[in-house]
Amino acid sequence: MSKIRIATTSLAGCFGCHMSILDIDEKLFDLAAVAEFDRSPITDIKQCGPCDIGIVEGGVCNAENVEVLREFRRHCKVLIACGACAITGGIPALRNGVPLVECMAEAYLDGIGTENPSRTVPNDPELPLLLNRVHPIQEVVRIDHFLPGCPPPAEAIWQAISDLLAGREPTLSYTQLHYD
C-alpha cells in the first residue's frame, strides 16, 4: 500500500501549530509508517504536489499567502485549517483595527530603530504585498476540517489525522476542543 502524502504550511502564523504537530511525539513514528510529507517545513519541498491531506497554519495577510493557500487547495484532497490564526485571523488580525498605512509607517518609516533615509515603502516584487486586512483561510478557499486552538493540542491534531487515516470524520472530544 502506498503511503499517504501530507503537506503542511504556515501562512500568517507563528509556527506554534507546527510545534504542536511535532508534539505528537512518539506517534510521529506511527505517522511516518503510513505517511510521507510533501511540501512542509519538515521536508523543505518548495512546491506542493498531489497530496491526501494539507494542513494550513495561520491566516492570510498577504498576496503570497493567498497563492500558497490556493496551491494547497488545488493539490490536497482534504484541507485542514489548523489553529486560531487560520480559523479567525488570530493575533495577526489584531492589525485589522489599524489602517494599513499606519502599519507600514511603523514598520518601514517611523518604528523605533528604523533607518530608512529614502522614506519610502519597499517596492521589491519579491516582497509579498499586504492585504488591507488579515483574513481566516476559510474566507478564501473551501476548508474541509478545522482544528481550533492556539495551538491545537497535539492530541487533537493526532486525533484528526488518525480519524482521517481510518476513514472517519475527524471529531474532537470536549478537552481536545479549545480556542486558547
Binding site: L100, V101, T120, P122, N123, L129, L130, L131, R133, V141
Partner: peptide, 20 residues
C-alpha cells in the same frame, strides 16, 4: 465557494503605498 472579500481590492492600499 468564492473568496468572501475582493482579493484584488484588498491589495489596492498596499499597491498605492508601495507604488507597485
Amino acid at each position: 465557494v468564492m473568496p468572501a472579500f475582493d482579493l484584488d481590492a484588498a491589495l489596492a492600499e498596499a499597491r498605492a503605498l508601495s507604488g507597485r
